[in-house]
Design a protein around this nucleic acid. Structure first.
Lengths: 236, 236
DNA sequence: CGTATTATTGACTCCATTCAAAGATAGTGG
DNA sequence: CCACTATCTTTGAATGGAGTCAATAATACG
């Protein structure tokens, strides 16, 4: 009893349908709950893990959000992803025992850890988890695929996609789909999408004029989500 | 004895260091050799699998090369990848039981298959394979990462990277690193890199004038690989 | 051998970047 | 709590890299 309290229990976590426990039986959830490390809390700007740092395990955001970044050989930072509660990160470390990206808290953040040293045991004893981890990993590849396609599209589609993606994912987590606060600067959004920060600013303006959204610095309100969605769905 | 002959044996396959058997013990290789399906041979243009088609398993190119493509919602084809012998494909199907890309032979091609229906058994009985599959999967993510970074770089870097990547991978497989035949048209190279076919043509020309390569239609000869590598390594 | 596909080359256009300067916001210390 | 400073955002003007259009040339294919 008392030992259980010191652990995060996936059982009473609201993210159980999307996070580690997804697709597992009750027994299996109990099993991994014993292994998943208690959440840690970080402040804005803190690193969850660092590129080239030792692979400690696969992680899950519990609250807050994170940016996943990498440095190219010119020293430029590239924001590869923004992660919301329930989303997993660190799969890239399974290749050779070190992380290939850094993950940085965008605001106060807590997370859970499936430690690397228990991984082999879990593969053996919780086969459903293996399957689910492959599923998560495969889903990530499919998101990257969409992002690669997006990289060839014009600026307005990139930004529309970014907003819609955030909206959809926030909704799935019980947040408002139409009103949210960006935790990235224009600079960071531009970096992520392969745009200049000025282009991001101009597009926010245009979207606002076209009555798609309302922008108040980092506060975004989506006024017409189907029209916004149409920006990247129906443009030539 | 006679049953073994009908199987592909990974034991006498020259790709054993990079393909499915990588990182496995002799026993484990024998085990998976019994399960991996005999290679099939396809002709140029044939599909290895189709987007949205049922996930049959993870595959490995045995000989020849393949392009991996996907269609966006405008019906445009995007070439995501070119695969060489020993490279695995189909991981994207682990997410929900169907492939999310198509794979098409670029010339006469043969391949091996790790069937989906044996996957769960293998996860249980050949734990090292699970680990290796995660490793492959993670490596693919890291390649996608590089490609996403590349997508923000200028045209000359994209093309230089494409040639260097091919050269490196061909070398690893025992082919010439400096002379090879492109199995893609200018159109297809452009599609893959997010460039117009005319841009690809012009750049081949420029690289040739700069004495980096020699181009004869699809025949490429790299004259100065370090200078070519410098195009994407040292450009601002 | 003739036809279709693929590649080259030039001229023009345009989307997004860069440069620049001013304005807004947030964070910090007195 | 306000002043000061750093960071972030907006907006305009000019530039440029790569795309599009178009016409010709080369190659592959039936």
């Amino acid at each position: 009893m008392s030992t259980e309290i010191s652990h995060v229990s996936c059982n009473n976590c609201s993210l159980d349908k999307i996070c580690f426990p997804r697709g597992l039986s009750q027994d299996e959830i109990n099993h991994i709950s014993q292994i998943i490390k208690p959440k840690k809390t970080l402040q804005k700007g803190d690193y969850i893990f660092r590129e080239n740092g030792e692979f400690k395990g696969v992680l899950a955001i519990r609250s807050g959000s994170s940016k996943v970044v990498t440095n190219d050989h010119h020293g430029n930072e590239h924001i590869l992803n923004v992660l919301l509660p329930g989303e997993l990160l660190g799969f890239d470390g399974l290749s050779d025992g070190k992380y290939h990206r850094s993950a940085i808290a965008l605001e106060t953040l807590s997370f859970c850890e499936l430690p690397a040293q228990n991984m082999n045991d879990l593969f053996k004893n919780v086969p459903a988890l293996t399957k689910e981890l492959f599923r998560h990993s495969s889903e990530k590849m499919n998101l990257d695929k969409d992002f690669i396609i997006l990289s060839k599209r014009p600026a307005e589609e990139k930004l529309a996609f970014f907003l819609i993606s955030l909206s959809d994912r926030l909704k799935k987590r019980g947040f408002s789909a139409s009103e949210f606060t960006l935790s990235l600067t224009r600079q960071e959004i531009g970096n992520h999408l392969g745009l200049a920060l000025e282009t991001v600013s101009r597009l926010f303006n245009r979207f606002q004029k076209d009555d798609l959204i309302t922008v108040n610095s980092k506060q975004i309100k989506i006024k017409d989500i189907s029209k916004l969605r149409a920006v990247f769905t129906f443009s030539e």
